[in-house]
């Protein structure tokens, strides 16, 4: 499935009133594809929260800027930079000290929600697989369950990004059970 078609499926899913989508991309164009999807949604005048567990937010900002995305209503929750000693001084980003602090993600989403100007907002979680490096499967599944239901209660459209080659059957089944729609390969 091409990125353009995935973007169309996401827009349709939003218009259908879904709140939770699992979006699966192959490892070969995962980062590029995720940035493109965020760019498309920002172009539709949605405000966004980008949660990064796999790359520093500064790198994603640079890629979004290169893609000419409108970043005026986009904020980040970064679980990477503090762990690796990267730049942690950015007004649009809340940094989490360690990727094991999963509850902090939910707290920081709540904080950033207040800053967003757009009426319709999205959360892009890049990626579920990034968290699995640090958390045991049962912890990760519990977190996904809490995250999904929190976003559902708030009616925030949430995309759980997963890498096709890194998602085992057990995790995929858990995601399918929770998601309104499964998009991607």
């Amino acid at each position: 499935m091409s990125i353009a078609n995935i973007a169309k499926s996401i827009i349709k899913s939003i218009n259908d009133g879904d709140t939770l989508a699992t979006v699966t991309l192959p490892a070969s164009n995962f980062h590029e594809g995720t940035v493109k999807l965020a760019t498309v949604l920002l172009g539709k005048k949605l405000g966004g929260i980008y949660i990064t567990t796999s790359r520093p937010s500064s790198q994603i900002v640079a890629e979004l800027e290169e893609a000419k995305a409108n970043l005026s209503d986009l904020y980040f929750v970064d679980l990477v930079s503090m762990t690796v000693g990267g730049n942690t001084d950015d007004a649009r980003t809340l940094f989490i000290e360690s990727p094991t602090m999963l509850e902090s993600i939910l707290l920081n989403i709540s904080l950033l929600e207040r800053r967003l100007k757009a009426k319709r907002i999205f959360v892009i979680f890049d990626s579920i697989n990034g968290l699995s490096i640090y958390s045991a499967p049962k912890v990760l599944k519990e977190f996904i369950n809490v995250l999904a239901n929190s976003m559902r209660i708030k009616s925030i459209y949430t995309m759980l990004m997963t890498v096709e080659e890194q998602t085992d059957d057990d995790l995929a089944a858990a995601l399918e059970l929770l998601s309104d729609t499964m998009i991607g390969t």
């Binding site: 094991t100 509850e103 902090s104 707290l107 904080l111 049962k138 912890v139 519990e142 977190f143 809490v146």
Partner: peptide, 19 residues
């Protein structure tokens, strides 16, 4: 519950049971 200091004060959220 987890308790965390944020720029707007303390925030509290249920702790993950398995964590």
């Amino acid at each position: 519950h987890l308790i965390e200091l944020t720029p707007v004060g303390l925030a509290v959220i249920p702790l993950l049971k398995w964590g």
